[in-house]
């Protein structure tokens, strides 16, 4: 039912289409890409042409081929970090909310500490000490530092659900805690988990781009972030090679935007209150019947 509502939502459809498009072209990069992304196949900073659709980089590499392959790494890092974040948020949020007591105190404390520590500077310090960080390591450090917000949301939802009569009823028929958590509670949290996951992926893609842009990533890997880094360090904009910078920018933005649209739609569908309803509609009806004047 949820899915059906989602399909009917135009924002969701646009979001899902763009996202699917990106995933497909990145996966199909070896087939679509005209050149080896790491090979010098042209002159430095050639403008876009039929031969090089998005021009070439300072190193004479084909920007179109690069952006396709970069998608593989950037999207994988985003999804991996998103999965780690969501998993930790879920494990901590559910345990804190359902078990309460000591467990809750410890988890809530850890959550609150992480929330007041500055995320980006913390990541920068970690990455700076780790040296040139590989994409896998980036996914990991983003994942383990960004679960606190999701954990808090899941905890408060779990607390509310735990008091519901259907949970009490399940306890009364003798369901063990494990089943109550995973079979009775969890399915009721799906929309929150879903939008939390999407949010985490957005955050991870953005943060990866940031870290790599300022040169903390591994410059030999090809991702949207390292493309930005190379374009920036070769002063692409100042020499007029706008495509070098613009192409990864557009890729990141479109991918982020597609996720954001999807997330917006999920919220809208899951939280009926945000749909046009209530007083406004009541008021409009009254207006129509002539009971009030505008």
């Amino acid at each position: 039912m949820f899915f059906k509502l989602l399909i009917r939502n135009p924002q969701a459809v646009i979001g899902m289409s763009i996202m699917a498009f990106f995933i497909v072209i990145s996966l199909a990069a070896p087939i679509i890409a005209p050149y080896d992304p790491e090979a010098r196949v042209g002159l430095p900073h050639e403008a876009p042409s039929s031969e090089h659709l998005f021009g070439t980089s300072r190193m004479g590499r084909d920007v179109f081929s690069q952006v396709l392959y970069a998608g593989q790494i950037s999207i994988t890092v985003g999804i991996t970090a998103g999965l780690i974040t969501t998993f930790i948020a879920l494990a901590t949020g559910l345990s804190a909310g359902y078990f309460g007591g000591r467990i809750d105190e410890v988890i809530t404390f850890a959550t609150n500490v992480i929330l007041v520590l500055p995320q980006l500077p913390l990541l920068l310090v970690l990455a700076a000490f780790l040296g040139e960080v590989s994409p896998a390591l980036i996914a990991f450090i983003i994942g383990v530092t960004s679960w606190a917000w999701g954990s808090r949301v899941i905890r408060s939802q779990t607390l509310a659900l735990r008091e519901k009569e259907f949970i009490k009823a399940a306890e009364l028929i003798g369901e063990p805690a494990r089943r109550i958590i995973f079979i009775e509670l969890l399915p009721n949290l799906i929309s929150i988990i879903g939008s939390g996951f999407i949010g985490a992926v957005i955050y991870a893609v953005m943060t990866q781009a940031t870290l790599e842009f300022i040169g903390l990533g591994d410059p030999t890997s090809i991702s949207w972030g390292t493309m930005l880094y190379h374009a920036q360090t070769s002063s692409a904009i100042y020499v007029g090679a706008w495509w070098d910078l613009l192409v990864p920018c557009v890729a990141i933005s479109l991918f982020g935007a597609s996720l954001a649209l999807l997330n917006f739609a999920v919220d809208e569908v899951a939280n009926p209150k945000l749909r046009a309803k209530g007083a406004l509609r009541r008021y409009k009806r009254m207006l129509k019947r002539g009971e009030v004047k505008a």
Binding site: I167, E184, N188
Partner: peptide, 16 residues
């Protein structure tokens, strides 16, 4: 010893 709750809407899990 089992219990039947007052609110028939709240006592069944909507996802099952």
């Amino acid at each position: 010893v089992q219990m039947v709750f007052q609110d028939p809407f709240a006592s069944l899990n909507p996802t099952h």
